[in-house]
């Protein structure tokens, strides 16, 4: 299932599962969720709570979107890292990476594991780091709004 989600993002280039942030008018962003571990459940909770709104435009990045956000929620292993990079490389136009949770931030509970990437910022530039193990859905939205703020003032 993990690899299917990645394949969807990486191979099709037109992911079907894209979301907008409710109440973020300053910048229109589409969130591509790369859910690799338990943190992905909190992303799911953010969707059911209506904080992340499924994009109605369907496949492809809709017109009028200012940036695409790659949301890495979960543990990235060295074995899986190339897949995450492919997903990142497949994004056209303005893009930001959001690191969601301890594993994506630093390796977290697996900081000493020989098989886990110690933070996705070793792979790609991260715009916003959301702390938590896992972070609450509200923390995700707070992080995305911070990204909106920072990119709007930049």
């Amino acid at each position: 299932m993990i690899s299917l989600a990645l394949m969807e993002v990486a191979e099709r280039r037109t992911p079907e599962r894209a979301y907008r942030v409710a109440g973020a008018p300053a910048l229109r962003i589409v969130v591509l969720d790369v859910g690799l571990a338990c943190c992905a459940l909190e992303v799911g909770a953010a969707i059911t709570a209506g904080l992340l709104v499924p994009d109605v435009a369907g496949p492809g990045v809709p017109k009028g979107i200012d940036a695409t956000v790659l949301l890495i929620s979960g543990t990235v292993t060295d074995a899986l890292a190339p897949g995450v990079l492919r997903a990142w490389d497949a994004i056209d136009g303005a893009r930001h990476a959001v690191s969601f949770g301890a594993c994506a931030n630093t390796g977290g509970p697996y900081w000493d594991a020989p098989t886990v990437t110690k933070g996705i910022d070793q792979l790609l530039p991260v715009t916003v780091y959301v702390p938590g193990c896992p972070p609450r859905p509200e923390a995700l939205i707070a992080g995305l709004l911070r990204l909106v703020d920072e990119t709007a003032t930049a």
Partner: peptide, 22 residues
């Protein structure tokens, strides 16, 4: 191998394998 690069270090779940990060 699923997670390890081929022939890299000793098998991680053996107690004799010291976690280098520590």
């Amino acid at each position: 191998p699923l997670l390890r690069r081929a022939q890299q270090g000793s098998p991680p779940l053996l107690k004799s394998s010291v976690l280098v990060a520590r």
